[in-house]
Write a protein that binds this DNA or RNA. Structure first.
Lengths: 377, 377
DNA sequence: TTGTGACATGGAACCGGTTCCCGACGGAGG
DNA sequence: CCTCCGTCGGGAACCGGTTCCATGTCACAA
């Protein structure tokens, strides 16, 4: 058996039996070195309960000498808290998701929490496994779901384990979520173009059938349609579904802009990446932006300034830290999991006007703009 | 106190005291329901040791009835294994790192391992905290360091805890690493242009002073210089440091390409993102690619095909899964941590030739090309 | 018949902390 | 002088599993 006295004061690994894992100092060793009991050592190190200053100092010194660090496993076992949050995410290598993850990570780490990452693939089997096998094992205190629509079963599963959940990127039935108003932002983007006088406006957005989209595509399309019909500009043929990235926007725009006769004067892109693709395609086709084609995006992507893209900026990283804060507050709250206030926190967006938008050429100018100029004295 | 008999057969949470955390069924409950001892239940569920088929079936059924899941904390406490790997990474929202992370995550999860993510900021204090506070707490079995040069102290710290480490993105003193040969790939990229006949070649690469670059910038520059001096094309003024992203390449190229007299005929970009920025800038300046300017990149970024970029492709996601495999093998090996074979696994790259490279216009044609054509009969 | 070994199971120690409970001590107040 | 209370510290239970060890059964070979 291990003789603990061999350990005291010795920082090196002692592997008397190479087969067995090496022992590192435990709180008992610290206690012995400091000449106190385990319970006092625990109190001294965790700061809970009464410990005299002199004793605390001795214990802290002993812990430092031994290079002691608590075993979070042992602590979790008894406290029931892991100080670890699970993050479920469909993509890592997409701008929005990477930014969100970044924000969450920063917020969690600065509160002393770990982040355990689960990428959820569209594969239902893999998804079930994550929920049944991983998230459930008392490994995480809470779960943040990014851009994923949890099923009622999944929510129940986590909630019955007393784990708070926060959604990000769209509403989830019955749990607090952080998101922007995707319908509204698309409506505003469209209205921006309408107010500039555009009439032939197209929307290049994400595929509605794509899994894991959390209805963002559908909502932005819906906002577009809302604005268009409010301006009396309904049409069957003003939406085109493209992959939600730069090449998607590029390929889509090449097709949409091919025929000069049917070319729109403005495009509402489903996201900034699509918008950038559109701009690249337009430049390649020799179409001047914005004089021949206005483009507006949604996101506030880091490429927007370089391409002079007018866009409605959301701040995914801030959304991430907000979600993390909600989780941390919930965990800190005494009412742990009880009545998680049905908060749907809608984050603000802001408009960054750049060079990709202007009024259309006079022959394309719409009624609204004409009226506006007529009304002016 | 909790009366366990109340729990048996009841799937719902029982919170007799709302203040205290809710109990979920433990292995003792399963054992009691199945009419066996804890030890037998443990053996039945984990598959270790002798259990008759009939008994195993009863236990499994009981566990299913109770919705039992093991507490990984309790299991880790006694086995000393967490089935969790820590990943340390400097950026989440950059293509290379996101791809690597993706690869690691897939590999780990399919082996039943969790991934705990630590973003290391350049802030030394934060970095120390991650190592002293987080990584050390027996929370992870191993560490993968991506694009980060660990100090000797950090390596010792982890190793003295018996935790295997694997580096990715460059060599780390004394630990196995996965990477491509950054010197060589830059040399090959440069030689590609030289062999096409270019003489006025510039390198737009990353800032050498940038922290967290893991000497990738320096190595690629060095490969470029190697190729240039081998071809007798040394020059003081053929390198420009730019931010290692698309806007960085764009801004850098705008300056480099501004003066038509001193314009290079070809550019070796430090990475594909810089290359894309260069192409965008060139197009904007009306410079034809490749007839007036050849561009070659390094990475195999997803935007490369769209921009017709000739590039040397590395596969970060595959590098990530390779790193994960090494870790998993090491953990599975009996010699746990002992003599981690000093493997430096260099991953292959492959050349994808697209439209961004060609021979220079005749007046710019270099000696090598001339010589080559002269040597031909 | 008895020894042997594979199989099956229960009891109990153990992992490394936290926390409850209790006792001790010392100064203040009645 | 006796309580009482605030402070301090130790002993022991406990969290929820895993694993060692002992016990027992049964089949089979000697």
């Amino acid at each position: 058996m291990w003789n603990r006295f061999h350990i005291v004061g010795n920082l090196d690994m002692l592997c008397t039996e190479p087969q067995r894992r090496c022992r590192v100092s435990a709180i008992g060793d610290v206690a012995r070195l400091a000449g106190v009991s385990k319970s006092t050592a625990s109190r001294a190190l965790s700061g809970r309960g009464y410990v005299s200053d002199a004793t605390r100092e001795r214990v802290v010194q002993a812990a430092a000498d031994l290079g002691f660090v608590v075993s979070s496993n042992a602590a979790s076992l008894v406290t029931g808290q892991t100080r670890n949050v699970g993050v479920v995410i469909p993509f890592i290598n997409r701008w929005f998701f990477a930014e969100v993850l970044d924000g969450i990570e920063s917020a969690l780490i600065s509160s002393g929490y770990d982040l355990t990452l689960y990428r959820l693939s569209p594969d239902a089997e893999q998804r079930r496994r994550v929920f049944d096998y991983f998230l459930v094992r008392k490994r995480v205190d809470a779960v943040i779901a990014i851009g994923i629509e949890l099923t009622a079963r999944e929510v129940d599963q986590l909630r019955s384990l007393g784990k708070p959940i926060v959604g990000l990127g769209g509403p989830i039935e019955g749990i607090p979520t952080v998101n922007i108003d995707d319908v509204d932002v698309a409506r505003m983007a469209t209205e921006l173009l309408i107010n500039l006088g555009h009439r032939k406006i197209m929307h290049l957005g994400g595929d509605l059938d794509e899994q894991m989209d959390f209805r963002v595509h559908a909502q932005r399309l819906s906002g577009f349609r809302l604005a268009m019909s409010a301006a009396g500009l309904d049409s069957d043929d003003n939406f085109r579904a493209v992959p939600f990235d730069i090449p998607g926007g590029y390929e889509g725009a090449l097709k949409v802009l091919a025929d000069p006769r049917q070319r729109p004067t403005a495009i509402v892109a489903g996201c900034d990446e699509v918008a950038v693709g559109v701009i690249v395609a337009a430049r390649q086709l020799g179409i001047q932006i914005p004089s021949q084609l206005s483009v507006v995006g949604i996101d506030g992507h880091s490429l927007a300034p370089m391409f002079g893209l007018t866009t409605f900026e959301q701040y995914p990283s801030r959304q991430g830290s907000t979600a993390a804060s909600i989780i941390l507050e919930t965990l800190a709250g005494t009412d742990q999991g009880e009545a998680p206030r049905e908060l749907r926190r809608t984050m603000p967006v802001s408009l960054a006007v750049r060079g990709s938008t202007t009024a259309p050429a006079s022959e394309d100018r719409g009624t609204k703009s004409r009226r506006a100029s007529r009304e002016r004295p």
